[in-house]
């Protein structure tokens, strides 16, 4: 068996998590709360590091006083603590983040998810696979037309699209299950190899 404290902690935590499969118990609940606390703490540390590198250092070392604007916006999030009459102030930082997010979404989605996917779909009809990809994509797209009453041809195309969507969901489901199983194998491998040294290969 391993003599490493870290491996013991990791193994006991793993057993506690899997004990939920038997029934919810105190051991599981304790580990669940420890995990949430540690993960929250980790996020706080990352956030603090961002404040230091993008706020404190530019302000103190670089004399970039424009950094005070996002700091002021950040502090506005705490305004409701000063009284309900200041509730409206938190809308400003929220609207700033949402505006930046919406702008970045349009930037990335238009090129990566729309133009590139469309151009990758325009394939020559020189193989059965290419025909399935092109017609399959068009059929699924036709299924998503909800703005007008579909014609008979569109209905037929949408029906084919439904079949393709079902195959896609089945494949995604299979992939998701296999991804989780590989994680499970990883945990079992850790327990038997690194903790109790039963697997020696």
């Amino acid at each position: 068996m391993s003599t490493d404290v870290g491996i013991w902690v990791g193994a006991l935590m793993t057993i506690a998590v899997f004990s939920y499969l038997f029934s919810e118990n105190e051991f599981y609940k304790a580990v669940e709360h420890i995990y949430v606390g540690a993960a929250a703490g980790y996020s706080i540390v990352l956030g603090f590091s961002n404040v230091v590198t993008k706020g404190w250092q530019p302000l103190v070392e670089g004399r970039q006083f424009q950094v005070l604007i996002p700091v002021a916006m950040g502090l506005m999030l705490f305004a409701p603590y000063a009284g309900t009459q200041y509730n409206w102030m938190r809308r400003i930082p929220i609207s700033f983040i949402v505006g930046i997010g919406a702008g970045i979404t349009i930037r990335s989605v238009v090129i990566e998810q729309f133009v590139k996917q469309l151009s990758a779909t325009i394939l020559p009809f020189n193989s059965v696979n290419n025909v399935i990809i092109v017609l399959g994509t068009l059929a699924v797209l036709s299924y998503f037309f909800f703005t007008f009453k579909p014609s008979r041809a569109l209905k037929t195309s949408a029906e084919v699209g439904k079949w393709i969507i079902m195959i896609t969901f089945g494949a995604s489901f299979g992939n998701a299950v296999m991804g989780r199983i590989s994680l499970l194998i990883g945990r079992i491998d850790f327990m038997f190899r690194e903790w109790i040294h039963l697997i020696k290969l």
């Binding site: 961002n50 706020g55 950094v67 950040g74 930082p93």
Partner: peptide, 11 residues
């Protein structure tokens, strides 16, 4: 700036 404001939201 957005990253900085998000850090305050995290706090």
């Amino acid at each position: 700036w957005a990253i900085l404001v998000a850090a305050f939201a995290l706090a």
